[in-house]
Amino acid sequence: MHKTILTINSVEKQFAKVKAVDKLSFDIREREIFALLGPNGAGKTTMVRMLLNIIKPDSGTIQFHFGNGQQPKASHVGYLPEERGLYQDIPVLKTLTYFGVIRGLERNRAGHKAIQWLERLDLKDRMHEKIQSLSKGNQQKIQFIASVLHEPQIAILDEPFSGFDPVNQELFSGIIRELCSNGTTVLLSAHQMQLVERVADRLLLINKGREVLRGTLEEIRSATGAGNKVTVQLDDIADLLKLRDHQSVQNIELINNSKYVIYIRPGAGYSELLKMLGTYYNVQSIHSEQLSLHDIYVKAIGK
């Protein structure tokens, strides 16, 4: 197992009458992708700002473990804030070089690395154009490059996929994986559960500043008792709800008159259930899968 790179211990932050973060504790390990999840206003951005020392916690400790010092240097950390913005009147390359330099890169190296990134993201031919001439998506790319240009030990990415089309979301989930395999630890917060599910090694779900769930996806599935789900499409209207008492069934959800989702108890076999479905109902299609992170998230937050 990789060593711990960041330890958060019982951190609290209160804004006026709102408790944004409430005794939150977790740790992040070297070279992992750690996802911080939660609904709007859950306290994710406040937590991230405290990690970056932009705001201070009321109590609790945040410890980085980079060699000797407790506080990380600018060069150790990359940050993509949720509140995005760039100098609109400055050319792309000059902007990236500046961000690289204030993060500790030597000017020529910053420029060189910026060009490499721009080339990779098909923006090299626009490097001398002002930021304002780029589309919103391309500005997002520039912002992303600025946060990882200096090869940080930990990259904190607040909503890295927002503003991207599905193709670019896929591209950047690949880039995040690549960063991780090259030695960068990634802390990300995002709402795109499908992407997080595929990318993240471990997850922390928070709500109203408090921890709701934590661990790998499997650990979370196990902790929440989330088994498989079976989606059944019938030929005509029928009532499946009477199967609710079956020993394998945890819950049945009616989608429409002829479509149901059956949630299976964790670890329970459901071949008998499938046999019953085939025998007593005109099944048009049947689809079995594990509960997605999206399902777990919605169930956990909705409690």
Binding site: I54, Y87, S147
Partner: peptide
């Protein structure tokens, strides 16, 4: 910079 939401990125560095 404040209006363009750049400050947060700068002061994290």
């Amino acid at each position: 910079e404040k209006q363009q939401r750049i400050t947060e990125q700068i002061v994290s560095a």
